[in-house]
Design a protein around this nucleic acid. Structure first.
Length: 433
RNA sequence: GGAGGGGUGGCAGAGUGGUCUAAUGCGGCGGUCUUGAAAACCGCUGUGGGUUCACGCCCACCGGGGGUUCGAAUCCCUCCCCCUCCGCCA
């Protein structure tokens, strides 16, 4: 969430930056400030009363000690009324504060100054391109056809088990998925300095709020309950991304400056209800309810936030480079950016069978927006407690990487050639026709 | 699922209604002494909020929330978490 002090001190700046998202959130600023003002007024009064009550109570204690019970009783009568007023005001403060914070939690992060102004995906500037569209001597098949021919994925039975949008990987397909996961984790741990973690796949509601998934995307998550006990519903959720647990690892902690940067890599399946997207609109593996992903998370000082973001994107790009895939990096414009992010790069890989680019990674610096929500701080050398920048990036999403890989490296004979770096993991140099 | 025991500062650990401004120890920081170090001794040592130009003053926080009371770490209710044992179980 945004810093309430920033809203107080520079309300117009905050409104201007929010307005660039074209989502109407700038209108909430004045409302938050009005609630904030009411809170502070009531707080000043109630704290003064509490100071008075504390002083009188102390006197009563002293009088009791001297057995001057009559005087003590008189003081009690006086303080009783103060207590009633305190109760009333405490309630006002709590209500106004809850209202202020609830509204503040619905305001997205401010876009970084370097982010292009724009309305939607059409306005996203392209930053760089790697490689080129492969030239096939034949008409490349789509991954759906390839998966069926090579029996990599059994779409029909996946749907039979869990409905549309769920995949049953089979044979070489299951093996390729597993090989990719291990390849990605090893790459990021050994080459890029990330520490491997394996988080729970079911997370508490507070974790979802911490990373800004909630309250906005509450309808997009799978909520779980314990057995048939409906009272447990809404406490735990299947994770939509490993970001939810991993970014929260140090929530409510104060890290030492020497511990930063903290870099984690985690594999997890990701679950997305995609409510309202019945049938998902896309055949195959592009848009599904469950997919695998290797996620990168960094906790860094604000001074290094943006250079760390560049490194993070580079780490994700390395994956595609090693796998011989053509991709482009784009910078999300103000209107297209995610809720918690201040700046986001998307990496889109070319899928020749689709004839389109697929988003396989989204790398964001959320600055202190998430750390503030989860109350994660670090202590500077001078002993000051500050909110660190939290970054997240896919390194990368698997289902679409799988698609790009088989579509790009398919051969005329129907087999799929495996890029050199992946061969030790698959223990094969091609998937046979 | 059943039975029991716990949750107090960075850590250990006292405190069962009013000098709690939370004892004491350890650790950490600074200082004295020393060629240097150790030891000893002395001082300091949490988080958030409000207010002030500032020094400072005030409020809250002993797992979370609520209650009783003039006054709660302490009493009551409730939730969460941890530990031990039993049962079930991959």
């Amino acid at each position: 969430m945004l810093d309430i002090k920033l809203l107080r001190e520079r309300p117009n700046f905050v409104k201007e930056r929010l307005a660039t998202r074209l989502a109407g959130d700038d209108a909430k600023v004045s409302e938050v400030l009005a609630l904030d003002e009411r809170r502070r007024t009531a707080l000043a009064e109630v704290e003064q009363l509490k100071a008075r009550r504390n002083a009188v109570s102390k006197e009563i204690g002293a009088l009791m000690g001297q057995k001057k019970t009559e005087e003590a009783e008189a003081k009690k009568a006086e303080t009783r009324a103060i207590g009633d007023r305190i109760s009333e005001l405490d309630k006002v403060v709590a209500e106004v504060e809850a209202g202020r914070d609830a509204l503040l939690a619905t305001i997205p992060n401010l876009p970084h100054a370097s982010v292009a102004l724009g309305k939607d995906a059409a306005d996203n500037p392209e930053i760089r391109v790697h490689g080129a569209k492969a030239d096939f001597g034949f008409k490349p098949l789509s991954h759906v056809d390839l998966c069926e021919k090579l029996k990599l994925v059994d779409f029909a039975r996946g749907a039979k088990l869990s409905g549309s949008g769920f995949l049953l990987y089979t044979g070489w397909g299951a093996r390729l998925e597993r090989a990719l996961i291990n390849f990605l984790i090893d790459l990021h741990t050994t080459e890029h300095g990330y520490r491997e973690v394996a988080p729970p796949y079911i997370v508490g509601e507070h974790c979802m709020y911490g990373v800004g998934q909630f309250p906005k995307f509450k309808d997009q998550a799978y909520a779980v309950q314990e057995g048939l006990d409906a009272s447990t519903m809404g406490k735990l959720y299947l994770l939509p991304t490993a970001e939810a647990p991993v970014a929260n690892i140090h929530r409510e902690e104060i890290l030492g400056a020497a511990q930063l940067p903290v870099c984690y890599v985690a594999y997890s399946p990701c679950f997305r209800a995609e409510a309202g997207a019945a049938g998902l609109g896309t055949r195959g593996m592009i848009r599904v309810h469950q997919f695998d992903k290797v996620e990168l998370i960094k906790v860094v000082t604000p001074e290094t936030g943006y250079e760390e973001l560049e490194k993070l994107v580079g780490n994700a790009e390395k994956v595609l480079q090693l796998l011989g895939l053509h991709y482009r990096v784009i910078n999300l414009c103000t209107g297209d950016m995610g809720f918690a992010s201040a700046k986001t790069y998307d990496i889109e890989v070319w899928a020749p069978g689709q004839g389109s680019y697929l988003e396989v990674s989204s790398c964001s610096n959320c600055e202190d927006y998430q750390s503030r929500r989860m109350n994660l701080r670090y202590k500077t050398e001078t002993g000051e407690n500050r909110f660190p920048h939290i970054l997240n990036g896919s390194g990368t999403a698997l289902a679409r990487l799988f698609v790009a890989l088989v579509e790009t490296h398919q051969q005329a004979d129907g087999s799929v050639l495996i890029p050199e770096p992946l061969r030790p993991y698959l223990r094969a140099d091609r998937i046979p026709a």
